[in-house]
Each structure stands twice: as structure tokens, then as C-alpha cells.
Amino acid sequence: MLHGDTVHRIHWVLNTDRLLGVCHCGAEHESEDPVELWDWLLAHPDGHERPPAGGSPRPERQLAGV
């Protein structure tokens, strides 16, 4: 278990083929492709705002109040 301030975590979701990425900022993203998931994690903060329920994240529109 790592405890640094900038730790990325990727969990292989039990009994599935999916990976769940958790950024050090708390944002999460699921993928079936580790390359795509790493691209997303390393793009922080791009696309890391928490989306409103049901909505897809559009960073430039969600800066306020999140």
C-alpha cells in the first residue's frame, strides 16, 4: 500500500474484465484497456471533474461549483 500524495490506483474489478482507475484527486474512470486508462489518469486535471449524475464530463462547463 502506497501513501504518497500523488498515488494513482487501478483496481481490476472482481469477476469482470474492467479496470477502475482512481486518480489522486479522487476522480474515477472505468476502462477495459489499460493504455486508455493510463492516458486518462495522466491527463489530470483534464476530464477529472466529477460529472453530475448521468452526465458526461465536459470540463470547460463544470469549473464552477464542483
Partner: peptide, 17 residues
């Protein structure tokens, strides 16, 4: 068995459980 991968970007350590 599923694994968890942790990567400390600053200290450059990789942990795979």
C-alpha cells in the same frame, strides 16, 4: 486473481497487489 496497481508518481514506486 484480480490485482490492484498503485503508482506513486512523485516517489516513482510501483506497487502491485
Amino acid at each position: 486473481t484480480p490485482i490492484t496497481t498503485e503508482v506513486d508518481e512523485e516517489n516513482e514506486i510501483i506497487y502491485v497487489s
